[in-house]
Design a protein around this nucleic acid. Structure first.
Lengths: 221, 221
DNA sequence: GATGCAACTACGCAATTACGTGGTATTATA
DNA sequence: TATAATACCACGTAATTGCGTAGTTGCATC
C-alpha cells in the first residue's frame, strides 16, 4: 500500500460520492470533481437511500450530501452514513443557511458545511481540510454557528466562589455526599457542610439539587 | 480598479490594527499587511491596554489580536474593544487551539479565529470574509467548535424514560422536593418516590444529585 | 492591637431522601 | 386468558440533608 504522507501523496485519489437530487447540478458536480486533481467521483445518487444501498458494496472517502432530498433528508443521511462506516467524511453541500438546518446537521455529525455557491478552488481546499481532520465551514455559516454558540453560552459569572467552594461544588455535582467530599478533601463533615452553606448563599439557592442545576446550567464548575 | 467582486468599494483600504506582544512577529505581520493589496496597518500594539488607549483617538476596521498577552489577555480584549466600538471586527490570531480558549474567545464575541500558521493568502481571504459578515475559522478549530457544539446537542439516548418520569425529572431538576412535585402533579408523595426510583434505575444512578447532573449534562430533559 | 475574612470544627434537630417491601388499577399485547 | 408495562398508593427505617448556633485558627489590612 502506498503510504499517504502529509498532504500530497501523489498516487492515491480521494474517492468522492455525491448525493444530490437535481440532475443537472449533480452532473456538473461530478464533472467538476473528476476534473480536479486528486479527486475521483465514481458514484452519484439522487437520494440517501440509494447511496446507503451502494454503501454495502464499498465506501468512498468522502460524501458530499445535499440537505433537501426526497425521502430521507441529508441530515438524517449523515447519521445513517456514519452508522455504516464511521470513518466516512460527510460534507453538507446546500443552499440552506438557516440556523435550524445548520444546527441539526452539525449535531448529526457533519464534518463540513458548505454552500452550493462554493467555488471550485474552495471545494478543493475544503475536501482536503476534511481529510486532514479539519472542518471547513462556509464563513457565513460559521458566523451563525458562532452566534448560536454564544447564545447557548454562559455568561461566566462564578458568583465569587472561593477555590474551596468550587472544589466542594464540583464534587457535589459529581454526586458525592458531604461525607464523601469530606473524605476526599481530608476535611471534616462539618467543614464541607459549612462550605456548602456558603455556596448556597452565594448561588442564592437552598438545596443541593438547585446548586447542581445552577452550576451545570451556567457552567460555573 | 482591480478585480471587481460584489462589494468592491473603490480603493477604500481596510485599516487593520495588530495586538501582539512578540515584537518580531508583530513587525512581520505589519509588514505583511501593508504589502497586501487593500489593507493598511497603521498601528500596532504590544498589549490590549495601549490599543484601548489609542481607540479613544480613532478606530480601525479590524483588529487582529493575540490571546496570550501581558496584562489583559486577548479574550478579555475582544470584549473591551467591542465595548468601545461595537462595529469593530476582531479576529483572534493565536497558537492556541485548546477548547477552553476557543470557547471563551467565541463567547467574548470574536469574529474569527485563526492560527498563527495562517498563510498570507488565507489571512487576506479571512479579513475579507469578516468584513463581508462571515466568520473565518481555522478548520482545525472549526472541527473543535463542531465537536463542542454537538455536546450541546439534544441527546439521542433518553434512557427510555416514560412521559411521567420525564415530568418528574424535570421538576426535580428545577429543585423541587418530592413533596412539591407531588403537589404539582396531583400525585401522592409515594408515587413521585416511585417514579424517582425508576428514573434512578434507568439512569443508573442512586441519588437525585447524580440524576440531575446526568439529566443536565446529557440534555435529557 | 483590632478588625475582618476564609477556612476549619462541632452539636442538634426537623425535614428530606433512598430504598426495601407490600399492594391496586388500567391498558395493551401475546 | 394471561401477562407485561405503566401508573398509582402505602409503610418503615437508616441515611442524608439543611440550617441554627457556637466556636478556633491563620493571615492580611488597617
Amino acid at each position: 500500500m502506498d503510504t499517504a504522507d502529509k498532504d500530497n501523496a501523489p498516487a492515491k485519489e480521494l474517492n468522492v460520492w455525491i448525493v444530490e437530487d437535481h440532475p443537472s447540478y449533480r452532473k456538473s458536480m461530478v464533472f467538476l470533481l473528476n476534473s480536479m486533481d486528486g479527486f475521483n467521483c465514481e458514484k452519484d445518487f439522487e437520494d440517501v437511500e440509494s447511496a446507503l444501498d451502494e454503501l454495502k458494496e464499498g465506501k468512498p472517502d468522502i460524501i458530499l450530501c445535499d440537505i433537501d432530498l426526497p425521502g430521507m433528508n441529508g441530515v438524517a443521511g449523515v447519521a445513517a452514513f456514519k452508522a455504516v462506516y464511521d470513518d466516512i467524511f460527510v460534507i453538507m453541500l446546500t443552499v440552506h443557511d438557516e440556523e435550524e438546518y445548520i444546527f441539526n446537521a452539525i449535531c448529526a455529525g457533519a464534518d463540513g458545511y458548505l454552500l452550493k455557491s462554493t467555488s471550485e478552488e474552495e471545494l478543493n481546499r475544503s475536501i482536503m481540510e476534511v481529510v486532514n481532520g479539519g472542518a471547513p465551514i462556509n464563513p457565513r455559516i460559521a458566523h451563525k454557528v458562532l452566534k448560536m454558540f454564544s447564545t447557548f453560552a454562559p455568561k461566566q459569572d462564578d458568583y465569587d466562589l472561593t477555590e474551596r467552594e468550587q472544589e466542594v461544588l464540583k464534587l457535589i455535582t459529581n454526586g458525592k455526599t458531604k461525607k464523601h467530599v469530606a473524605a476526599e478533601l481530608f476535611l471534616s463533615f462539618h467543614t464541607v457542610d459549612y462550605h456548602l452553606r456558603n455556596i448556597y448563599k452565594k448561588l442564592q439557592v437552598n438545596s443541593r439539587t438547585e446548586a447542581v442545576a445552577k452550576a451545570l446550567r451556567e457552567r460555573i464548575i
